[in-house]
C-alpha cells in the first residue's frame, strides 16, 4: 500500500465510507433495533437505548421461529444438495458432449429462467396437489429444484468447460472408465463451481415467498422463515423490536453462508456468466 494521502486518497476514503454506510445501514438498523427495548414504542434512535434480549425471547417463544428455521434448513439443504447433483450431471452433458439438439437444450434452459414465478402459482399448485404434496416440505423442495436448476446448470457449464480436456484424456489413458474419471478428475475440479451455484439454490430456498405461502397454506408448523416472518409481521405490525429480531434471526444464517463461500463466489460468477 502506498502511504500517499493526497486529495485523491481522501476522496476515495470518503467514497468508501459512504458506500459502507449505504450497504451496511439496513443490516445495522435491523440488528440494533432488535436489541432495543424501546424500538416498539417509537423511542428508537441510532444507538439502542436500552439493551435487551426480550425481543428474541419473544420471537422464539411466541413466534415459533425455532420451527420455521428448522423447516427452512431442511428445505434449503435438500434443494442445494439435489440441485447441485442434477445440475452437475446436466452441465457435463451440455459442456462436454456434442449431440443433436444441444443448442436447443441450452436455449431451453436459458429460456425457462425467464418465466415469472407468479405465473406458475396456479398450475404448480394444481400439480403439487395432484402429487399429494401440499402442506409438505417435499412439495416445496421439488418446486424450488425446478426454480434453481436452470441457473445452476447455466453456471456450472462454465466450470465444466474450463476443466482441461487433456486431464480427462490422461485419465482415460490410465484406463479409467468414464464414471471413474468423472469422480476423480471432474468432480474435484468443479467443486468451487458447485459452491457458487449452491449460493443461488440456497437463496431461492431461503427467500422464496409466494410458493411457500400457497403450497404450505394451512400448515403453520411447516412454514419456512419467509412466510413465518410475514405471518409474524401481520400479527405484530407495529412491534418493530420483535419484527426486527425475527428478521435478524432469518438473515444471520444467510450472511454466514455468504461470507464462508464469498471467495469462491466471484470466480464462479464470472466463469458462469462469461461462458454463458
Amino acid at each position: 500500500m502506498r502511504r500517499n494521502f493526497g486529495p485523491r486518497t481522501v476522496i476515495k476514503g470518503l467514497v468508501v465510507a459512504a458506500l459502507l454506510i449505504f450497504t451496511l445501514f439496513p443490516a445495522y438498523w435491523m440488528i440494533s433495533s432488535s436489541f432495543d427495548a424501546r424500538a416498539s414504542s417509537g423511542g428508537q434512535s441510532l444507538l439502542p437505548q436500552e439493551f435487551t434480549w426480550d425481543n428474541y425471547i419473544f420471537v422464539f417463544e411466541e413466534g415459533g421461529f425455532g420451527t420455521f428455521l428448522r423447516n427452512s434448513f431442511v428445505v434449503a439443504f435438500f434443494t442445494v444438495l439435489i440441485s447441485g447433483i442434477l445440475a452437475l450431471l446436466a452441465s457435463v452433458a451440455v459442456a462436454r458432449f456434442k449431440f443433436k439438439f444441444r443448442t436447443s437444450v441450452l436455449i431451453l434452459i436459458l429460456t425457462v429462467q425467464m418465466v415469472p414465478l407468479e405465473a406458475l402459482v396456479i398450475p404448480l399448485f394444481v400439480q403439487v396437489r395432484d402429487l399429494q404434496l401440499l402442506n409438505s416440505l417435499i412439495g416445496l423442495v421439488v418446486v424450488y429444484l425446478a426454480f434453481s436448476l436452470p441457473f445452476a446448470i447455466w453456471m456450472l457449464r462454465g466450470f465444466v468447460a474450463a476443466v482441461p480436456v487433456e486431464l480427462e484424456e490422461a485419465a482415460y489413458l490410465d484406463g479409467a472408465s468414464w464414471g471413474r474419471m468423472f469422480r476423480s478428475v471432474m468432480l474435484p475440479l468443479v467443486a468451487p463451481g458447485l459452491v457458487a451455484t449452491s449460493i443461488f439454490s440456497f437463496i431461492v430456498a431461503w427467500n422464496e415467498f409466494i410458493f411457500a405461502m400457497t403450497l404450505l397454506g394451512g400448515a403453520s408448523e411447516k412454514f419456512t422463515v419467509a412466510i413465518g416472518l410475514k405471518q409474524f409481521f401481520g400479527l405484530h405490525s407495529n412491534d418493530w423490536g420483535p419484527v426486527m429480531a425475527a428478521s435478524t434471526i432469518i438473515t444471520i444464517p444467510v450472511m454466514i453462508f455468504f461470507i464462508i463461500v464469498q471467495r469462491r463466489l466471484s470466480g464462479g460468477l464470472v466463469s458462469g456468466a462469461v461462458k454463458g
Partner: peptide, 22 residues
C-alpha cells in the same frame, strides 16, 4: 468492502423490505 457487500446481498428480500418499510 467485499464483505459489506455480501451482507447487503445476503439480506433476504422479505427481511430487507420490512427494514426499508420501517
Amino acid at each position: 468492502v467485499g464483505s459489506a457487500i455480501m451482507v447487503a446481498w445476503a439480506m433476504p428480500a422479505v427481511t430487507g423490505t420490512y427494514v426499508w418499510i420501517w
